[in-house]
């Protein structure tokens, strides 16, 4: 996505491999919010998401000497968080994995109907629309939009082909666009 950031992360990876704690901290600060959000989409609760991200970073530090400079550190850490999340769910076994594997077709019922909202609530509305996206679409979209992973990296994390990733993101954006358009039309009617 962003070449400058990618280069920077590659440099961080080299430094972390040499046990540079500052680089490690920087990586943590950079990705922590995104990783918690990502973990939470699996674990469904914030406390477990926190633990899972901590585990992933402890793991990364302990295996820092094995960091492969050719592979993306981003997809490595996201994949690691995903695996830790799935393990956490299995241990708890309170939540089934089904939600993670649902079909990708947008579900019209999920779209929130127009409500009276101020411009300030638009962001909240967007968050809600994103939450309502089918899981795989949402995952691909968030990794791309929020975390800046490229298609190859997302493909690694999600274990699908880059082409599928692209499809997910396109479908997600189409749904969001439809919601937004509907919102704008309703608003116009309401104003008139």
């Amino acid at each position: 996505m962003n070449l400058k950031t990618d280069e920077h992360i590659a440099k961080l990876a080299v430094r972390i491999r040499r046990s540079d704690r500052k680089a490690f901290d920087e990586l943590f600060r950079m990705f922590y919010p995104g990783l918690v959000r990502f973990a939470q989409s699996y674990t469904r609760d914030k406390a477990t998401a926190y633990d899972v991200v901590q585990d992933a970073f402890v793991n990364l530090w302990q295996r820092r000497e094995q960091i492969d400079g050719k592979l993306s550190l981003k997809s490595y850490i996201f994949t690691s968080v995903k695996n830790h999340s799935l393990n956490a769910i299995r241990k708890k076994s309170t939540i089934t994995l089904d939600s993670d594997l649902t079909d990708d077709q947008p579900d019209e019922n999920n779209i929130i109907p127009f409500e009276e909202t101020s411009q300030n609530d638009l962001r909240e509305l967007f968050s809600e629309w994103i939450r309502q996206l089918p899981d795989r679409q949402r995952e691909a979209f968030e990794l791309s939009r929020f975390d800046g992973l490229d298609h190859e990296e997302i493909a690694d994390v999600m274990n699908v082909s880059p082409k599928t990733v692209n499809n997910h993101i396109v479908l997600a954006l189409r749904t969001l666009k439809d919601c937004y358009q509907q919102y704008k039309e309703n608003r116009k009617n309401h104003d008139e």
């Binding site: 901290d25 943590f28 600060r29 922590y32 919010p33 918690v36 959000r37 939470q40 914030k46 926190y50 991200v53 901590q54 970073f57 402890v58 638009l122 962001r123 967007f126 968050s127 994103i130 979209f141 939009r145 929020f146 954006l173 969001l176 666009k177 937004y180 358009q181």
Partner: peptide, 29 residues
């Protein structure tokens, strides 16, 4: 144009994790 607008708005959404929480988590780590 609309897609770009949707992309931009989504990019301005607030993090649910505050910088303070990040620092606490880092010292825990």
């Amino acid at each position: 144009d609309q897609i770009r607008e949707v992309w931009d708005i989504s990019g301005s959404l607030e993090d649910s994790v505050t910088p303070g929480e990040t620092e606490r988590a880092l010292s825990d780590l």
